[in-house]
């Protein structure tokens, strides 16, 4: 994966928990442009460990002058977002991947309906700029608990087709009303909590939407957990995964070669075959099917953890 060494040029507090970061080329060069919904992976070195989290780009996709992301502080996370909030300063150097997209717009759609819950607004911020430039009809619905928490409010333009639903103010998002009566050829995209994604999928299915017109993105940062050990089959080496480390990060730290892209359990790239499992894999990804999870023969190291006596990976 191609890496870009950038400089942090702006940090803005959008809400008590969310900060916006802007990265630019230190020499002022143009960065690769991207497509709406793309993300970058940010490297966060702390002592011996390098954490890597993926964040949706929220800036104008066709503007190569800089990349912007919005990071929500997760105090119960592995420490990646806390690092971004507490350690990163304007002027710092930061290494990111070139953009990749697992949540692209389907430009065949006659109309696009974008549904965001909380920090799930982020991929839509670049998408709506792309839709604007492509002059495609769309509507965006953004649901948040309170106005104070709704970091996206500062980043969204005011327009008739952008709808804000603040549940504290009694304006909950009514999925039935939004999805019913949309013109044929409409595609719906959801990003937010699992519950919202599932509710949209259910509602769309009840209304007879084609499955291929219903898109979602659920990838999140890997959760922390109890420390555990894995054995690398090719070398016989035992790798310890710390509480605030993902399995993928621990393997990388141990110089085990492994492919990745989203680091959020959505792209399938790091899928790894399990050669021995005496215990229970704690699957946290959005990639494997229920049947695959139950078999315990494959694991997504970017998200998932393990509890038990022995886990051996085909690496």
């Amino acid at each position: 994966m191609r890496k870009l060494a950038l400089k942090v040029t702006e940090i803005e507090t959008l809400s008590p928990l969310v900060k916006r970061f802007r990265f630019e080329d230190p020499k002022g060069g143009a960065l690769p442009v991207f497509s709406g919904g793309a993300h970058i992976t940010v490297e966060m070195p702390e002592g011996e460990t390098i954490r890597r989290n993926s964040y949706s780009l929220i800036s104008d996709p066709y503007d190569g002058s800089g990349y912007e992301i919005a990071v929500r502080r997760e105090d119960r996370g592995r420490g990646g977002s806390r690092f971004m909030h507490t350690q990163v300063r304007e002027g710092d150097e930061i290494t990111v991947s070139s953009p990749a997209n697992l949540f692209q717009l389907d430009l065949r759609a006659r109309k696009h309906v974008l549904l965001a819950g909380g920090i799930g607004i982020t991929p839509f911020l670049s998408q709506l700029r792309q839709l604007g430039m492509e002059q495609k009809p769309y509507e965006l619905h953004y649901a948040a608990r309170s106005r104070e928490e709704a970091a996206g409010l500062k980043l969204l333009p005011e327009a008739a087709h952008i709808h804000i639903h603040i549940s504290e103010e009694g304006a909950r998002m009514d999925l039935g009303a939004i999805l019913d009566g949309q013109p044929l050829g409409t595609h719906v995209y959801t990003c937010g909590p699992d519950g919202l994604i599932k509710a949209v999928a259910d509602q769309a299915s009840r209304l007879g939407w084609p499955r291929t017109a219903v898109h979602s993105e659920a990838f999140t940062a890997p959760p922390p957990g109890e420390p555990f050990e894995v054995v690398v089959k090719s070398s016989g080496k035992t790798v310890t995964v710390k509480a605030d480390q993902s399995l993928l990060e621990a393997l990388e730290a141990a110089k085990v070669e492994i492919d990745y892209s989203c680091r959020g359990g959505a792209c399938g790239r790091c899928q790894t075959h399990v050669t021995a499992c005496d215990g229970r894999i704690l699957h946290n990804d959005h990639w494997l099917s229920e049947a695959e999870r139950a078999e315990q023969k494959t694991i997504m190291p970017c998200m998932s953890r393990f509890k038990g006596a022995r886990l051996e990976l085909d690496l």
Binding site: M1, R2, P32, A100, S261
Partner: peptide, 14 residues
């Protein structure tokens, strides 16, 4: 299957 998996993983700049 392998070729498709490879192609889907091709990223920009590479």
């Amino acid at each position: 299957d392998k070729a498709l998996k490879f192609l889907l993983a091709v990223t920009q700049e590479q």
